[in-house]
Simulated scan of single mutants.
Amino acid sequence: MMMPLKLGLFTIGLMIGLLPPQSGRAAPQAQSDAEPQLIFQILASELALQQGNVAIAAATYLGVAEQTRDAAAAERATQLALALRAPTQALAAARIWLEAKPNEPNAQETVDALSLLLGFDHDLSDSLLKRRQAITSPEALDAFYERLSNLLIRSQDPRRALTILSRVSVQEPDHTKLLYTKAMLHEKLKEHAQAEQALRTLISRTPADAHALNALGYSLADRSQSLQEAKTLLEKAHQLRPDDAHILDSVGWVYYRLGQFDQAIDWLQKAFVRMPDAEVAAHLGEVLWKANRATEAFTIWRHGRQTDPNNQLLQDTLKRFGVSFP
Rank of each mutant, 00 (worst) to 15 (best):
H238D: 07
L240Y: 05
T176E: 14
A183V: 03
S226Q: 15
L185C: 08
I164Q: 12
I247P: 00
S166L: 05
D243I: 01
K190I: 10
I247Y: 02
A264G: 06
D262I: 09
S250D: 06
V168R: 10
G252A: 05
P242K: 04
S166Q: 09
S204H: 08
I203P: 09
R241M: 02
S155Y: 05
T201K: 15
L162H: 06
S219P: 09
H246L: 07
Y256V: 06
H246A: 10
L258Q: 08
V251A: 00
L248F: 00
A198T: 00
L185W: 10
D157K: 13
A193R: 14
K177W: 07
Y255G: 03
S226P: 13
L199T: 13
A237L: 03
L165Q: 09
G217R: 00
L185A: 10
E229K: 14
P242N: 01
T176A: 12
D157C: 11
L185P: 04
L213P: 03
Q228S: 12
L216G: 01
T163K: 15
H175R: 10
H211K: 11
A230W: 10
S166D: 12
D244K: 00
Q225R: 15
R160K: 03
H186F: 14
D222S: 06
V251H: 00
G252V: 01
G217Q: 01
K188H: 10
D209H: 08
D222A: 07
E196C: 04
D249E: 08
S204R: 09
L189P: 05
A221I: 08
E235N: 11
T232C: 07
S226T: 14
D243V: 03
E229M: 13
Y255I: 02
L202I: 11
L213N: 05
S169T: 06
S224T: 15
A195I: 04
A198D: 00
H238F: 11
S166F: 02
K190R: 14
Q171A: 14
R257D: 09
A193T: 13
L178A: 02
S155F: 03
H186T: 02
E191W: 00
Q239G: 10
T206A: 11
Q194E: 14
L216I: 01
E196N: 09
L233T: 07
Q171W: 05
S219V: 08
L185M: 06
Y180P: 13
I247M: 06
L248G: 00
T176D: 13
A208H: 11
S166M: 07
K231R: 14
T232K: 14
F261W: 11
K231A: 15
H175I: 03
R159C: 06
W253S: 01
L162G: 10
F261Y: 15
E172T: 11
H211T: 10
L189S: 05
Q263I: 08
Y256K: 08
S169H: 04
